[in-house]
Design a protein around this nucleic acid. Structure first.
Length: 713
RNA sequence: AGCGGGGUGGGGUAGCCAGGAAAUCCCGACGGGCCCAUAACCCGUAGAUCAGUGGUUCAAAUCCACUCCCCGCUACCA
């Protein structure tokens, strides 16, 4: 029987688009691994799906005035589409809202319940009689017992930063209706994680081949002792609890999502018409289970999911390896759905070839530490490595052969260098294999790229352009070897760059897809005489200017910078360094903003001044007071802080710069604003990208002398 | 400030978890070669006290302690 490889990939949460961080973190490595193993002749089963239950989705639905089902349908469709576009070769990408999944989850739940691994326990929680529901912590507001802030949330006080238990709050209110909720006892079901502690410890001892970060993380959790966790929630969006008396509750998302690994395997079996097929992966001792996920997901896969499996059915396979990745950041910031800084898959695929993106994500994969998506680096690696080294080698070889022979020439006499070249292919095959088997994907790619470089070297040394004139046979041999290298490269790159590899395969005259062939094909002979197709360049060069400049200026144009006059200054009631400024913003009316200028300016100094504000910044509550925008101030490397002075421009008038159109958005996210880097120049003028900010009355300058290059925030 | 992750030639990195001849690869710089190829490719040269200090050891980038700096999350960053 063929070796079985099971690949489970983290389930993307269905309340937002996928971004590059998701792909680099788990989908791409999983796909590389899957494609490689299929070529190695192993039976691969790779599954995942959208994670579609839980509170955040219900909140998104409320915000968008629609139903959870709509939200989930929308993102499941998008995720499915994006996975396909990125070339992620799932055997099944499903969702947690299927009947099958519900059935499997309930079965596991009930079994664990009957075995005593799930038990009832009373929990105190706030219940709103008016809304007729239990309130999650974040829907509770009350007076903080520590600092007296009246708007502390159930889980935390924004004023003093203390973590709270909802019961500690005084004057508790329901955030939804404003009514007064009461504490009610609610019965919930708990999963007895603690009962698995010793078993888990034993099991983990056997898993020394895990990545150190995964091992360390898990051991830390175990050290602190495992706590039983509530696995039911007082909401109505989720899987029904198959226990009497829990009709109003649902199974908690994290519990249902991990079970997707099993339920999806079963669903896949049904879909291919052999419903018991999943057993070959799950009850076969020789099958190996791999789980791909990002670091924030580690304990769910190293502790919780194994516990569920152990408790449910001892004969099921536990994870063999969990090569969790770190994070991919965008220029130092983490990719995240909740912040506006990500690069979304739907957008990026409009602009770039999939394989170019896959190449950069692969060569830059956050295998051992966080890495960054840097646009200049993306362009450099695309142009110098993918296009320059790999693409160019393939193209120069195929083009040259096509022009001079039109077909694959025969292999004749070999000299030592030729033999070395053929040996190099074998060697690379081993290196790439070994690396991918160990989930060292970067290493594998690099090994393949080295072969491309060697190919260029060989081609150069052999000078076929000279040979063709007086030794056509010898020239043919050289090209035959080069084409063998090209063929091998297509195989080695197939897991990483599936689309371009397929193209090369066809150019070489093969009719089938490269993804159906065996890895060992990389060493097999080429048939002389096969006609070549007319070659086209595989990859395109990119230019940084086209990519990056519009992106940043786009953000600047969203700003609505205005002149404002300070009418009044007060101390912030709950902060040492903050003022409340009452501003006159002309046509935009009057408003209050919070400003951290107390250490730098006295009240008298500020009062009456004209300043510059970002008027369309998303309002934020800062220590209990809502701030409607923020003022611009400069701070230099010595810590000198200065307001920006718009001269005697009228309140409400616009602050603009030349060359960038003004298209202010209604609400500007703070994260977007942060991307705009304005500085003070040597003449004390406020600038963006070397262009001076000005109003109808003249240039905006720094109120106090600051050093050149002072950052404006 | 709390938690987490890092600091290796100009930039980006590998190696460090299982210490051993002063260190990998890519880009960049400089010099040379080639002209088949998407002004691509090939060869050569320069360039690192492996953040700092102290310790363990016959031996440390690799182990331990402390310090400094950077980044992410959280926060009276607005």
């Amino acid at each position: 029987m063929k070796k079985k490889i099971y690949i489970g990939v983290a389930w993307p949460y269905a309340n937002g688009s996928l971004h590059l961080g998701h792909i680099a973190g788990c989908y791409l490595p999983a796909d590389i691994f899957a494609r490689y193993n299929r070529m190695k002749g192993r039976d691969v089963l790779m599954v995942s799906g959208s994670d579609e239950h839980g509170t955040p989705i219900t909140i998104t639905a409320e915000n968008e005035k629609t139903t959870p089902q709509d939200i989930v349908d929308k993102y499941n469709k998008e995720h499915t589409e994006n996975m396909k576009q990125m070339g992620i070769s799932f055997d099944l990408f499903t969702r947690t809202t299927t009947k099958n999944h519900e059935k499997v989850v309930q079965d596991i739940f009930l079994t664990l319940y009957n075995k005593g691994y799930i038990y009832k326990k009373n929990v105190k929680a706030f219940y709103c009689n008016h809304c007729n529901r239990f309130l999650p912590d974040r829907y509770i507001e009350g007076t903080c017992p520590y600092c007296g802030n009246e708007k502390a949330r159930g889980d935390q006080c924004d004023e003093c930063g203390k973590m709270l238990d909802p019961e500690e709050l005084k004057n508790v209110k329901c955030k939804i209706c404003g009514g007064t909720p009461e504490i009610k006892v609610s019965e919930h079901l708990f999963f007895a994680l603690s009962k698995f502690e010793s078993k888990l410890k034993k099991w983990i001892k056997k898993n020394k081949h895990w990545k150190s970060s995964v091992l360390k993380f898990t051991e830390n959790w175990l050290k602190e002792g495992l706590k039983d966790r509530a696995i039911t929630r007082d909401i109505n969006w989720g899987i029904k609890v198959p226990v009497d008396g829990f009709e109003d509750k649902r199974i908690y998302v994290w519990f249902d999502a991990v079970i997707g690994y099993l339920s999806a395997s079963k669903e896949w079996s049904q879909k291919i018409g052999s419903p018991d097929k999943w057993v070959e992966w799950w009850r076969n001792k020789d099958a190996k289970h791999y789980y791909f996920l990002a670091k924030d997901n580690i304990p769910f896969h190293t502790l919780i999911w194994p516990s569920i499996l152990m408790g449910y059915d001892e004969t099921l396979n536990l994870p063999y390896d969990i090569p969790a990745n770190e994070y991919l950041r965008l220029k130092g910031e983490q990719f995240s759905k909740s912040r506006g800084t990500a690069i979304w898959i739907p957008n990026i695929l409009e602009k770039f070839d999939v394989d170019a993106v896959r190449y950069y994500l692969s060569i830059n994969m956050p295998e051992n530490k966080d890495t960054s998506w840097m646009w200049d680096d993306f362009v450099a690696k695309n142009n110098d490595e993918l296009v320059g080294a790999y693409g160019n080698f393939v193209h120069r070889v195929v083009t040259f052969t096509y022009k001079n022979f039109g077909e694959i020439p025969a292999l004749k006499e070999l000299d030592d260098f030729d033999k070395e070249a053929l040996e190099k292919i074998k060697e690379t095959s081993m290196k790439v294999s070994e690396a991918i088997e160990k989930c060292s994907f970067k290493k594998g790619l690099r090994a393949a790229m080295n072969l491309a470089q060697f190919g260029n070297f060989y081609f150069d040394q052999k000078q076929p352009w000279n040979l063709v004139k007086n030794d056509k046979e010898g020239c043919g041999t050289v090209l035959h070897i080069c084409l063998k290298i090209v063929k091998a490269l297509a195989v080695f790159m197939a897991p990483y760059l599936p689309f371009s590899s397929d193209k090369i395969w066809n150019v070489l005259g093969y009719k089938e897809s490269i993804h159906t062939i065996s890895w060992d094909q990389c060493l097999e002979d080429l048939k002389a005489g096969v006609e070549l197709e007319k070659p086209r360049p595989l990859f395109k060069k990119l230019s940084l200017e086209e990519i990056i400049v519009p992106a940043e200026e786009e953000v600047f144009s969203k700003l609505d910078l205005r002149v404002a006059r300070v009418i009044d200054v007060k101390d912030h009631p709950n902060a040492d360094t903050l003022y409340l400024l009452n501003l006159d913003v002309g046509e935009l009316g009057k408003r209050v903003i919070v400003a951290g200028m107390k250490p730098y300016y006295s009240k008298d100094e500020i009062k009456g001044k004209s300043i510059v504000i970002v008027s369309n910044l998303k309002p934020a509550v800062i220590r209990g007071v809502k701030s409607n925008g923020m003022l611009l101030a400069a701070e230099d490397e010595n810590g000198v802080c200065s307001l920006l002075n718009p001269g005697d421009a009228t309140p409400g008038s616009k602050v603009v710069i030349d060359g960038i159109p003004q298209e202010p958005v209604n609400v500007l996210e703070f994260d977007d604003f942060k991307k705009v880097n304005m500085i003070v120049d040597e003449n004390q003028k406020a600038t963006y990208k070397g262009r001076i900010l000005y109003t109808e009355k003249g240039d905006v300058v720094s109120d106090r002398p600051v050093k050149k290059g002072a950052k404006i925030l």
